[in-house]
Amino acid sequence: MSKLRVESFTLSLDGFGAGPDQDINHPLGVGGTSLHGWAIPTRTFQQKLFGSDGGETGIDDEFAARGFQNIGAWILGRNMFGPVRGPWPDESWRGWWGENPVYHVPVFVLTNHPRPPLVMDGGTTFYFVTEGAAVALERARRAAAGKDVRVGGGVHVIQQYLRQRLIDEMHIAISPVLLGSGERLFEGVNLPALGYACIKHAATARATHCVVSRR
């Protein structure tokens, strides 16, 4: 059965999933890039993001790799697509990833402002959904054709699906850094009351990996 999954989402020790003041120079907010010290060196991220044949194997890479397994569609918030706010001034912004993004499947972007679908190289098409999270999920499931749907973020998008108990499984990586401010993933979210529990955890030198599942 198709699942709704969060994968490789990293939190700081003080609970932040993104730093403050996101802009074109700080895609993850100020300090946010430091969260991903566990992921960048992995073979999976080196191949997916940089087209490199190198990279480290081991536990960190195993968790990075699982995030791309059996994924048929993604859901992103507007901020995850780019730093442009308000109505689209034009169609010049085409994402953070160049002309061949890492997704290679349909991606549904939650936004309040309509925009035509954006067809990219490698099988990625961005669809801009103005009707809300439920409609985005419905369309993503249909596009995934029986495979899982991955919620890429950001924080507020994940919270929307969590509060409705729609997320089946989350891989959270806890990075040994402190951000001090930003967006807290579990702010106001009572995971046990919603039926979630940690079913697996593993620690490496760069992160503690936790898998949280809905009972």
Rank of each mutant, 00 (worst) to 15 (best):
W96T: 11
W74K: 08
V105A: 15
A73C: 08
P87M: 06
S92M: 05
G72E: 09
R66C: 02
T57S: 15
G86I: 13
G95Y: 07
G86W: 09
F81N: 03
P106I: 09
D90K: 14
D53L: 11
A73N: 03
P106S: 10
W93F: 14
L76S: 10
T57C: 02
G54K: 12
N112M: 11
P116G: 10
F81E: 05
M80V: 12
E99Q: 15
I75A: 01
E62V: 02
I71K: 05
E99N: 15
P114Y: 00
P117K: 11
H113P: 05
G98R: 08
N112Y: 08
N70E: 14
E99C: 05
W96A: 09
W96S: 14
G95I: 06
P117V: 07
R115H: 03
G82V: 11
Y103P: 04
V105N: 13
S92C: 00
N100A: 15
N100M: 09
V107K: 00
M80K: 04
N100W: 08
D90N: 15
V102T: 06
N79I: 15
P114V: 02
R78P: 00
V105W: 04
R94M: 09
V102I: 12
I59F: 02
G72W: 13
N79S: 15
P83V: 12
D60F: 01
F81C: 06
V84T: 12
R66N: 06
A73H: 05
I71H: 07
G86P: 06
R78V: 03
W88L: 08
F81A: 06
A64G: 08
G55D: 13
E99K: 15
D53F: 02
F81T: 07
L76K: 02
G98Y: 07
E91H: 09
P101C: 05
G95T: 05
E62S: 13
M80F: 06
H104F: 00
E56D: 07
P116V: 08
P114R: 00
T111H: 05
